[in-house]
Amino acid sequence: MKRVAVVTGGGSGIGSAICQRLGADGYAVAVLDLNGDGAELTAKEIVAAGGQAVGYQLDVSDRTDVDRVLGEVRAELGSVSVLVTSAAVAIQEPFAEISVESWNRIMAINLTGTFNCAQSVLPEMVESGWGRVVFISSSSAQRGGPKMAHYAASKGGVIALTKTLALEYSPLGVTINNISPSSIDTPSVRRKQEAGLVPSNEVMGRHIPVGRMGTGADIAGACAYLCSDDASFVTGQTVSVNGGSYLA
């Protein structure tokens, strides 16, 4: 039986790239996204390429919705062996202008959403004696992000959650890691470029040692390794996929 991989935020960008890589690697992929049409499109692309996938609409900040949708995943695809949490929202606001509502929304999706999904699937991974959990964090949590205090704080929480869960669950056969991307070319970044909020890919690429922006496939490659049997001795780690950005 194929291992079942659940990916949140799978309807676009990094999440979609991860879904497609895991589908190509032979997983049955549950593509979860608040944008149900985007989730279904990613799933159709995986199926068209010869893989197995189903798209589901999901609000990760709603625990009732999480438990309901994951129940549908189990009924349709089987027990969950892999969880990747890529669902997130990023807003640029000066700290003094961040409202309580904005702060709470970022935390609810980025951090509480990660908690909701992990807590929902970990028991079945423990029962089977095998599991892989990969959270998607951010370089903003490691070096800060101008006008992104709420986003950076939420992703810092994801890194802390990684280390704590690794201590609890690694003895039970489940590894917990996170990937910290930086300067990745995604639809979200392109929208910010169009709005003049961030520089062009060419400008950003000049400040990255490898000489280019990252792609969703770059993150997906790292994720595929962390989800594999080869990564059984890797847990509690933050894997920075950033083209050497910190060296510049």
Rank of each mutant, 00 (worst) to 15 (best):
E93M: 13
E168G: 15
A17Q: 02
D185G: 09
T238W: 07
G236M: 10
G55E: 04
M1E: 07
A96T: 13
I184S: 12
I208E: 01
V174R: 06
G244P: 06
N104C: 12
M213T: 03
P199W: 05
L41T: 10
L247V: 08
M213N: 02
W103P: 11
K147C: 08
A108N: 14
G113M: 04
I98W: 04
R206L: 04
N178R: 08
T235G: 01
V47S: 10
T215G: 07
P146K: 10
A153K: 05
K163C: 05
N110W: 06
M204W: 01
Y225A: 11
G211K: 00
S138V: 04
V47D: 11
V210E: 03
G243S: 01
T8S: 15
G157F: 06
L172H: 11
G36Q: 15
G214C: 01
V66L: 10
S180H: 14
G156M: 13
N177A: 06
N177Q: 07
D229S: 09
L226H: 04
Y151V: 01
E194K: 14
M125V: 08
L34P: 07
R105K: 15
L41I: 10
G243E: 01
E127Q: 12
C117Y: 05
S128A: 13
G144K: 05
G38L: 00
G145M: 07
T175Y: 03
A149R: 06
V100G: 03
N35C: 13
C19M: 00
V7K: 00
N178Y: 04
T112V: 15
G10V: 00
D229T: 04
A49V: 05
S170N: 07
Y169V: 14
T175W: 02
E202R: 06
L165A: 08
G38A: 14
L111F: 14
I184N: 09
T112L: 10
A75N: 15
A96S: 11
R21T: 14
G214M: 01
T175G: 07
C19K: 00
E194M: 09
E72G: 02
A88L: 01
F115D: 08
N177K: 05
D218K: 02
M107P: 12
S140H: 11
G156W: 09
T114P: 01
R191D: 08
A220C: 04
C223E: 02
S228M: 06
T238L: 09
A118S: 15
